[in-house]
């Protein structure tokens, strides 16, 4: 059964940069880009990999959508190089970091404009702000069900068989389509490395570009963004390391003293 899959991806500052190079602009409450590259959020790549594996088994089509600045085109080219079928770039010319509700409204409008779909896959959260709300809000906007923290998707009798991670283990969920899924990482969905030839081909493929005006959303409101939350403060926590040697005549005495020190330092045991 061919599945019509939409994968939403986000471009972020490379979270793998050395910590010594990471800076924040406390006034703007933003990470400073510095020499960091822009990369596709890893959980979004897990989502795309999950979609590619599903398509390989069931057939169908994968459309990748991203809402972001001009540079977002690079993330979409990479998705095409990984063998997504089509890519749509919705230009964000407003807030650098729009709130998840605005993003969900924009993505929902784009998905409605595309027409029918079976499943939308998103990363469980982004590696920059880690808010993790977009998938749920998008499902609400589209009026469909959402399943979060999924690490495996298979075709079932009446829809999809999903395996989702929970605090205590796994849950298996049978879901009917259409629906929205947030994908988490697992050994099954390590993103594939695009082949150099496919990289080259991806730059020859067409890439659809839409503006907020093309989508019929309230562009002014979306551009203003950040309706319901604000970043109050942004700072890099200072890490202090103190090394202390516990002495004592016997092992028991040292353990006793060690336990005592832990209680003193942490206020509990």
């Amino acid at each position: 059964m061919p599945v019509n899959i939409i994968v939403c991806v986000k471009q972020i500052l490379d979270p793998e940069i050395p910590s010594r190079d990471f800076r924040v602009d406390a006034e703007q409450r933003e990470a400073v880009r510095g020499a960091a590259n822009l990369v596709t959020n890893i959980f979004c790549e897990n989502a795309l990999e999950t979609a590619l594996q599903l398509k390989e088994k069931s057939g169908g089509k994968i459309t990748v959508i991203s809402y972001g600045a001009d540079s977002t085109e690079d993330a979409l080219r990479k998705a095409l190089a990984m063998k997504a079928d089509a890519a749509i770039h919705i230009l964000n010319d407003g807030q650098a970091h729009p709130d998840p509700l605005s993003v969900a409204q924009v993505l929902a409008a784009a998905i409605r404009k595309l027409g029918e779909f079976d499943v939308v896959m998103l990363g469980r959260e982004s590696g920059d702000w880690g808010v993790g709300q977009t998938a749920g809000l998008l499902a609400e906007e589209l009026g469909v069900a959402a399943v979060a923290f999924v690490d495996k998707v298979e075709i079932g009798a009446d829809g999809l068989q999903l395996k989702r991670q929970t605090d205590v283990g796994y849950e298996r969920v049978a879901a009917t389509m259409p629906l929205v899924i947030s994908i988490t990482n697992d050994e099954h969905n390590v993103p594939r490395i695009p082949k150099t030839r496919d990289v080259m081909m991806s730059f020859r493929q067409p890439l659809t570009k839409w503006t907020l005006e093309d989508l019929g959303v309230n562009a002014a409101e979306v551009r203003a963004g950040n309706h319901y939350y604000a970043v109050v403060d942004l700072f890099i926590p200072v890490q202090e390391l103190n090394c202390e040697f516990v002495d004592g005549d016997t092992l028991e005495a040292r353990v006793e003293k060690f336990a005592q020190r832990i209680i003193e330092v942490t206020g509990s045991m």
């Binding site: 690079d74 190089a81 150099t196 990289v199 991806s202």
Partner: peptide, 23 residues
Amino acid sequence: DFLEIDALLSEEELLSRKSVRDF
């Protein structure tokens, strides 16, 4: 990339490099 030569490379070139580096 002391001289910021990456800025002189196309996305296609950067992505090819990344593919091989990841591999």
